[in-house]
């Protein structure tokens, strides 16, 4: 029973990672850039929803929607101001700019909401008891897992069935050819950032509801873990991000429970390193051999 409870908390944590990793992987697939500011968009989503619930007394669902709208706008603005001018610049320059954006978001949040951790009111409280109360699953875990699955299905349908999704796939394969076919590459990239940021807002609400504490640096570690998850599953691959996220969550939860709390992150990273040595492009990534 204990094992089952760790497994469920692992899957729940993994679902949050998966939602964040989806944003990472989509942006990487299309813009070929590591968006280090993604983790901080999560934090902004958390703060916006908290402010909406506490100061404006809005119901949780409206707060979540508001956070999604704000983060989407934020994502598009960041992309337009900081990343779009660097479309043809070397990837390291874009990476450093992303780090700059990350610092900017963290320090803006510090000025607006202060450095002290704020306690977060979960969007739903309570837990479901099964097996005569031996196993209790909080509603927030159930909500997290359900959201992850719904997001995954909707996103897969969107990418495979809609015209915009087709444009996204075309851009990630070959930007030049996509442009020649009349696809507006810049707009497609903006849409990708918008979707990624909206997902980050949802992840922010779910993450803060599970851990009930929020500060300006809240987003950075989950951001790094989700990035790891995206690479673990094969960066650029949407099912890969989902699989990588869930597996990473389970590994972390099991390592905390059975091996060592102190070394949980190390174990997660060690698994990533081993995986990459055996499969250099991640679990579901396509390995493209170099041609001379």
């Amino acid at each position: 029973m204990e094992f089952l409870s760790y497994l469920i908390s692992g899957i729940s944590l993994g679902s949050v990672y998966a939602i964040i990793a989806l944003g990472y992987t989509m942006v990487y697939g299309i813009a070929k850039m590591l968006n280090f500011a993604h983790g901080d968009v999560i934090m902004v989503g958390g703060y916006i929803s908290l402010t909406a619930m506490l100061s404006m007394n809005l119901p949780p669902i409206v707060a979540v929607l508001l956070a999604m709208v704000v983060c989407t706008v934020l994502g598009v603005i960041i992309e337009g101001l900081a990343y779009k001018p660097l479309r043809s610049a070397p990837s390291l320059a874009v990476l450093i700019t992303a780090i700059g954006v990350s610092y900017f978001l963290q320090n803006s949040a510090l000025l607006v909401w202060g450095a002290n951790p704020k306690s977060y009111t979960p969007v739903i409280e309570g837990a479901m008891k099964i097996f005569d109360g031996k196993l209790s699953i909080s509603y927030i875990s159930l909500l997290t897992m359900a959201s992850c699955i719904v997001i995954m299905i909707v996103l897969t349908l969107f990418i495979n069935k809609t015209q915009l999704g087709k444009a996204m796939r075309a851009c990630s394969e070959d930007k030049g050819a996509a442009m020649l076919m009349g696809i507006n590459v810049n707009r497609t990239i903006s849409v990708t950032f918008a979707i990624g940021s909206a997902l980050a807002a949802i992840a922010g609400v779910l993450l803060c509801s599970s851990y009930t504490s929020l500060m300006p640096t809240t987003g950075s570690m989950p951001g790094i873990k989700a990035f790891t998850a995206a690479v673990f599953g094969g960066i650029g691959s949407i099912p890969g991000a989902f699989l990588g996220g869930i597996l990473l969550g389970i590994i972390e939860s099991m390592a905390k429970a059975y091996i060592s709390t102190q070394l949980a992150n190390s174990i997660v990273f060690a698994v990533l390193i081993l995986t990459l040595l055996i499969r250099p492009a991640g679990l579901l990534g396509k390995y493209v051999p170099e041609k001379v």
């Binding site: 001018p85 660097l86 610049a89 700019t97 780090i99 700059g100 610092y103 900017f104």
Partner: peptide, 22 residues
């Protein structure tokens, strides 16, 4: 309080200034 914010903005502007063709 604003110094790290200024640092971040300087960082972004330098990267834009040195890498953007326009």
């Amino acid at each position: 309080d604003y110094r790290m914010l200024v640092y971040a903005i300087v960082l972004i502007l330098v990267m834009l200034g040195t890498n953007n063709a326009q």
